[in-house]
Amino acid sequence: LRLEVKLGQGCFGEVWMGTWNGTTRVAIKTLKPGTMSPEAFLQEAQVMKKLRHEKLVQLYAVVSEEPIYIVTEYMSKGSLLDFLKGETGKYLRLPQLVDMAAQIASGMAYVERMNYVHRDLRAANILVGENLVCKVADFGLARLIEDNEYTARQGAKFPIKWTAPEAALYGRFTIKSDVWSFGILLTELTTKGRVPYPGMVNREVLDQVERGYRMPCPPECPESLHDLMCQCWRKEPEERPTFEYLQAFL
């Protein structure tokens, strides 16, 4: 395994491009020591290896001592969030954005069929390849993070704006909380990567959403798509659509 080009840095580690087995181009995620327990990670990795779908980033291998390494397929255009905010983002029109959403829903419909939960679905965790191919990455890892700023769910590192209220408040993460996050991801797509709930801080978002506030229809977004977002944001988790439905609708 060779680490060649550093692609990015996040709160919990770095991402590199490299070569595996001398020939395969891969992405390598390294986790800061202390982010998660190697034992817990190894268990999760076994499950992650079983998830194989064309719209999920394929896991190739893991190094399960500290520092933990995760070796996955390489996606040339990086994260969907950076892609939307970058040069190419300007030229993306609604049909392409909807197609990308459908690809993500397709990957998540598979996660749904496998009775698995992602827990951290957002544009930053979707990767883009050639020809606007989108794949879901980092599934299941969020559960293992041991950082206090994260586990408190009120901490600075927790993605509260993407998280369903029952998950943020009571830790009830299910495929239905993933559906909520998918609704937020749809706003990221239609606004080219704007942060959700602009002008609001995490605490406010939690309070307002509890009181029934939902983001309005983004500019140039059809009402039918906003309606779909609002279905994803129904207060009762069981009233939210399935990913199978979302995939078919898109």
Rank of each mutant, 00 (worst) to 15 (best):
V71K: 00
T191V: 07
T151W: 14
Y150L: 02
G140Q: 01
T191E: 08
T24M: 09
Y245T: 12
E239R: 14
C217Q: 13
I184R: 00
Y60C: 11
E4L: 15
E166G: 04
E220M: 09
T187P: 03
I145S: 04
S181K: 01
P218Y: 09
R143D: 02
R153D: 06
C11M: 04
A102F: 10
T19R: 12
E236A: 12
E223M: 12
E166F: 00
G10E: 03
G140F: 01
L185C: 08
E238V: 05
C230Q: 11
K77C: 10
P241R: 07
P38A: 13
F249M: 07
Y60P: 02
R211H: 11
S76C: 12
S181T: 07
K161D: 02
G10M: 01
E146H: 08
E66T: 15
V15H: 01
I145V: 10
N21L: 12
P159H: 00
R122G: 01
W20D: 14
A27S: 05
R203Y: 14
Q247K: 12
L225K: 04
L7R: 11
K85A: 08
M75S: 05
C230K: 14
G86V: 08
V63I: 09
D138T: 01
P165A: 11
Y170C: 08
T191K: 06
G140R: 01
E238C: 14
T35R: 15
F83E: 07
D178M: 03
T88E: 10
L246G: 06
M114S: 05
L186M: 07
P222A: 08
E65K: 13
S106A: 09
S177Y: 03
A109T: 15
T242H: 15
E44L: 02
Q43S: 06
I184C: 11
Q46P: 02
M215G: 02
K6M: 14
E54G: 11
G129H: 12
I160K: 01
L31Y: 04
L84E: 05
R93W: 10
A105N: 06
E238S: 12
L56R: 01
W162V: 01
A61M: 06
L246V: 08
P219T: 11
C230A: 10
L225W: 08
L84G: 03
K161G: 00
T151H: 14
D82Y: 04
A101L: 08
A61E: 02
K90F: 14
K50L: 11
V133A: 11
R119Y: 01
C221R: 04
E236H: 13
G18V: 03
Q43I: 06
P237T: 12
K50Q: 11
G22I: 09
K85G: 10
I28R: 03
I126L: 04
V63H: 09
W162Q: 02
T187C: 08
E112T: 15
A105P: 02
K32Q: 06
V111H: 06
M48N: 05
F173C: 10
L81R: 14
G8R: 01
A105G: 06
E220D: 09
M17N: 10
Q9Y: 07
L185Y: 08
I28P: 00
N21Q: 10
A61Y: 14
Q208T: 11
V133Y: 12
T163G: 01
N125Q: 03
A152G: 04
Y110I: 06
Q43E: 09
